[in-house]
Each structure stands twice: as structure tokens, then as C-alpha cells.
Design a protein around this nucleic acid. Structure first.
Length: 267
DNA sequence: ATGGTCGTCTTACGA
């Protein structure tokens, strides 16, 4: 048995339906996790996703901002939303699925971007991001008995030196400041998560999932960051076949600034 | 060069 899961910050799900269809045609993931859907639940485009074979869809949206969704070809049970920082943002959705006799808890996150100034005393958005990361430290990969776990999403932090185009030049840029990168690594360590993308690509290699809209030529500049992540409980590590980062999707018509990341498992 | 370009609650603001 094989199983694949894709995470993609889509930056408006309604605007991106054409490239979501393109992704599904190419990759056919069993589960598709989206972030920044930017739409209330009543207006979420369920029909086209169902037409692509995703009959099990759970959504958590709000008007204009944030929003997460899980679209699955296998049944989802026990769906759950956690209101991180208690501010009512649609930034987390979770469900359980079963595959190959295994029970798996799936978390889909959209972590706050954190604004421009990496100082919580003058930038409340940065404080919110740090508080959100602090709350994520409660999240353990082995929290539930006889249940594996996968955590995906746009975590808006590039934790390792080679997760950004220039470690030195980005040390004071939100997404790569030491307080963020150390915080995210503590979430990983404390929760006994495995960074599955880095299990297959050594930390010495550059790895990006996001390229800014603002570059004149994103591909030529190649000033990317690894903001999107796929983590797993340790038992899933040996079952991982490969990770695909679909860089070409950054060049598709009306692209998101993030590209899809897909994990393939023997599961 | 402290810019640039996307998106939506669009002439403001978040990313």
C-alpha cells in the first residue's frame, strides 16, 4: 500500500481552483491539506474538490484571512479545531484517518506570519507568532495511544541555515530569527516529531518551498525559504518513501507564492 | 535600491 499527502499554502482557494486541479492531475495525493483558503465555510468550493475524488472534506475558514482545509479520498473522523492563542483565527484543523491498519492523527496548521519587525514590544503580530509557537509545544507526536501522527502546514518559519537563501542576511528577518527557529526546533524536539523533509534531504542542502511575489524573477533570484513542513511521529519515519517539492508550481498561471509539498509513504 | 507584488474585508493592510 502507498499513501501520499500534500500540503499547500494556496493563498485564496477560490482563485486557485485551476492550479489545484493541475496539481491533482499530476500528483493524485490521497489527502490534500490547504492553508490560507481565505474564504468562509459557506463559500468554500466543495463541489470541484468532490469531483476530483475528495469526498471527505473538513474546512475551517473565515472571511478574507487565514483558513485551513483537509480534502481526503479516505474517510476522516474526529475532526477538531484548536483555537491557538484564543483569538478566534482559523489556523488549525485536525482529523484522524486509518490506513494500512494504522490510526493516524493529522494536524494542518497556518502559523501567523508575524509582521515585519522581529520585536514583540513594538510589533504585536510577532508576539502573537511567538505565543502560537509556545502553545504548539504542548503538541506531542505520541499524544494518543496506538495512534501515529502527521503534522503539516505553513509554519512560517525556516528553522535551519539551509532553509533560507542566506542564513546571515536573514537572521533579523521574520521567519528566520533565532527566537523563532529555536522555538520551532523546540516544538519538534519536545513533541518527539520527525522533520520528514529533512529525513530525505540532508541539512547541508538548500531546500525551499516559498519564493516571494516581489522578486522581479523569482527563479533567477532564487531567494527562497522553507516555510512549509511535513512532520511525523517517529514510527512513520521508516515508512517514508520520498518527499516531492513541486517547484514548477511556482511558475504556473496565477501561482501561490508557496509550492505543494508531498510526502509518499508505504502505508 | 530599505524597493518589490500579491490577495481581500480594495485606495488599507496583511503577507
Amino acid at each position: 500500500m502507498s499513501f501520499s499527502i500534500t500540503t499547500w499554502n494556496i493563498n485564496s482557494v477560490r482563485l486557485r481552483m485551476p492550479i489545484i486541479e493541475k496539481l491533482v492531475m499530476q500528483q493524485q495525493p490521497d489527502i490534500l491539506c490547504l492553508q490560507e483558503t481565505k474564504v468562509i465555510n459557506d463559500l468554500f468550493p466543495l463541489a470541484p474538490l468532490r469531483a476530483m475524488g475528495y469526498e471527505h472534506i473538513i474546512i475551517h475558514g473565515q472571511k478574507g484571512y487565514h483558513g485551513v482545509a483537509i480534502a481526503s479520498r479516505i474517510p476522516l473522523v474526529e475532526d477538531h479545531r484548536q483555537d491557538f492563542c484564543g483569538v478566534g483565527d482559523a489556523r488549525h484543523i485536525s482529523a484522524i484517518f486509518e490506513r494500512g491498519g494504522r490510526r493516524v492523527r493529522l494536524h494542518n496548521f497556518y502559523v501567523p506570519a508575524g509582521g515585519d519587525e522581529p520585536d514583540r514590544t513594538i510589533n504585536p503580530k510577532f508576539g502573537h507568532k511567538l505565543d502560537f509557537i509556545e502553545e504548539m509545544k504542548q503538541l506531542h507526536a505520541n499524544a494518543e495511544p496506538d495512534t501515529s501522527a502527521i503534522l503539516v502546514g505553513d509554519l512560517n518559519i525556516a528553522p535551519l541555515e539551509n532553509d533560507v537563501w542566506s542564513h546571515k542576511q536573514l537572521l533579523k528577518i521574520v521567519s528566520h530569527t533565532p527566537v523563532e527557529t529555536e522555538g520551532l526546533l523546540e516544538v519538534i524536539r519536545g513533541g518527539a516529531w520527525v522533520d520528514l523533509m529533512r529525513q530525505t534531504v540532508p541539512a547541508s542542502e538548500k531546500l525551499y518551498t516559498w519564493w516571494s511575489y516581489r522578486a522581479k524573477d523569482w527563479e533567477e533570484a532564487n531567494r527562497g525559504r522553507r516555510l512549509d513542513h511535513i512532520w511525523g511521529s517517529a514510527d512513520l519515519g521508516p515508512l517514508l518513501q520520498r518527499i516531492d517539492i513541486l517547484k514548477e508550481a511556482r511558475g504556473w498561471d496565477r501561482p501561490s507564492d508557496h509550492v505543494p509539498v508531498t510526502a509518499h509513504f508505504d502505508l
